[in-house]
Write a protein that binds this DNA or RNA. Sequence first.
DNA 1: GAAATAATTTGAAAGCTTTCAAAATCCGCT
DNA 2: AGCGGATTTTGAAAGCTTTCAAATTATTTC
Lengths: 345, 345
Amino acid sequence: MAGVSLGTVSHVLNGSARVREPLRRRVEEAVQSIGYQPSALARGLRRDKTNMIGMVIPDVTNPFFPAVVRGAEDTAFANGYRLILCNTDNDHSKELVHLNELRTYLPSGLIVIPSDFSDLTRQTESYQQSGAAVVCVDRLPKRWHGDSVTAANEAGAHAATRHLVQLGHRRIAAISGPLHLTNAEQRLRGFRRAMTEAGLAVAPEFLQEASFDLPGGRSRGLLLLRMLPRPTAIFAGNDMIAMGVIQAIRELGLRCPEDVSVMGFDDLAFSALTNPPLASVMQPGYQLGATAARILLDRVHGDTGPARHVVLQTELKIRESVAPPHEIDSPHRARKTVSSKAKKK
Amino acid sequence: MAGVSLGTVSHVLNGSARVREPLRRRVEEAVQSIGYQPSALARGLRRDKTNMIGMVIPDVTNPFFPAVVRGAEDTAFANGYRLILCNTDNDHSKELVHLNELRTYLPSGLIVIPSDFSDLTRQTESYQQSGAAVVCVDRLPKRWHGDSVTAANEAGAHAATRHLVQLGHRRIAAISGPLHLTNAEQRLRGFRRAMTEAGLAVAPEFLQEASFDLPGGRSRGLLLLRMLPRPTAIFAGNDMIAMGVIQAIRELGLRCPEDVSVMGFDDLAFSALTNPPLASVMQPGYQLGATAARILLDRVHGDTGPARHVVLQTELKIRESVAPPHEIDSPHRARKTVSSKAKKK
DNA sequence: GAAATAATTTGAAAGCTTTCAAAATCCGCT
DNA sequence: AGCGGATTTTGAAAGCTTTCAAATTATTTC
């Protein structure tokens, strides 16, 4: 200690009160010379809040989520906040463990991509009364009324399906993600609406549900492709499912897009590099994360307005995995990029 | 509080002293009923150590790193530790910020994939004297003497190159990653050794250096492909570079593998799905992370043995992006999977 | 120049655990 | 019943900040 009281040091470091020049300088020099850094733990303990943000995601390994994490990390970091990353593996009990433990670190907030059957709502209460904000991303738990950031799943799926219809497809099947996840359900809804609007009926067996991964898409794809008459196009709930479908197509000796068109959702970084390049509905993962962090920070800084539900626009990326069906003459061709509208309420 | 002293509660919760049954039960019931959870902050403050592990990586968005993160997260979580994730963006100053700040949280340890020009060694000292362990993964800073977990880069690159040679290639070029990264440098070394052993000279202009990403691979690829005589095979420093090369090949109206074979390194999850499927040297990202966490936990639990340098084996994955060169008759064909040896010292 | 007022600086408490030494209780034994 | 030793339980300190009220110093005003 170089000549001054503890309280003064704190004031210099936090600018919490004016300190006259000579003192301030002495303190700053001392801090410099011994490389003093305040203990984040003691600080958090005293302030009842740390600069940490808990980020709970299903799995870093799934290529869509890292983009979200990155978006959140960047804006959090730029504002002096740090991320604690938690994988839930879509396991509800693991989610609970994380949620419960995270609280004892007094984080400033939580950014959550909820797992299946998440009852985040109840957890959230205890966080909110400890002053932490909670923002949900990508998919929402049932009856979620707090802040959220999602993609325009319904609109995106609608645009994608309409594109398939415009290419001339009539027998279009869908492989949705797990329907208790709101994003999977919304995408399916968009698919159905587009089909209805086109006056096309969807046989119930043409609607399959799979887990959001490659094996899920492959097995459901095999199922669909063995039906007669076979669908000429398949709308997949996400790109991993779509890749599974393409694999199934190949296994059965069929070709994509000549025999079956495939449309994905997510537009992962590598979807443009696959064989064939995958048509997909782009959703802005980075933006989802960044926006969630933005909202969270606003809350931390005192925004007490009504819950915000940000819906980010998607964009249809047409690539070689879709083409007009072979059996029928293709009536119209639509190669342009179609955007669904962004919406905020 | 239900009838007993503070110290006793602590003992019950930590098993730090025997407590007689009736008391213990009363405490446990009280804890249950109000859902009491000890403050991780106060605990860390008192114990001079938290259950957090700082994980510093270049970029979650790069598909190789999430696997490492996942491996580390899983073993850390299973042992009651949590991960604070930090992106450095390969920016040394950002790495410094993270490293400095992380320390104030008194983490149990650090798992670091160092950025370019990292001088982690100095940082490490101050961590170690605060009792935190540091493990380096994937690549090492210059003169790193602490624990490390890396892949057998040299051996993997050697095996891959030898495979190309055995296919009949003579004019083989390499696009390495940034050579101040030890992993890039080791892979290049493996490449050179295989070439030397095969009695093949490598023209200096056939050795290019690129950043570990797709644009890097594309631009260097274009360069190489415009040379005359053109290389018949290109060994890429990682899969992202390899994808860039394939893109370059396509842009020039050439075909892979007919005109040019491409070999990658990493074997990312989607490398099997690209067009053409990418031959690559598999390195076990998940294991790298898991092993690093394992070593870290051992250190935390008191292992004070000499520094461990674990080298994990790689495995050559042959896929359609490599084939015998067209111009020459292919002398031998080698389709089998070749493993490099694992090594521990 | 003294008093009043404003501006700085300080001291001490509080936040929640863990831990060490001291106090209390238990147990067996005579 | 009383005593010694072993076992449990308790009290208080410490860990590092922040913050509030109190104390000190500077500044203004008459």
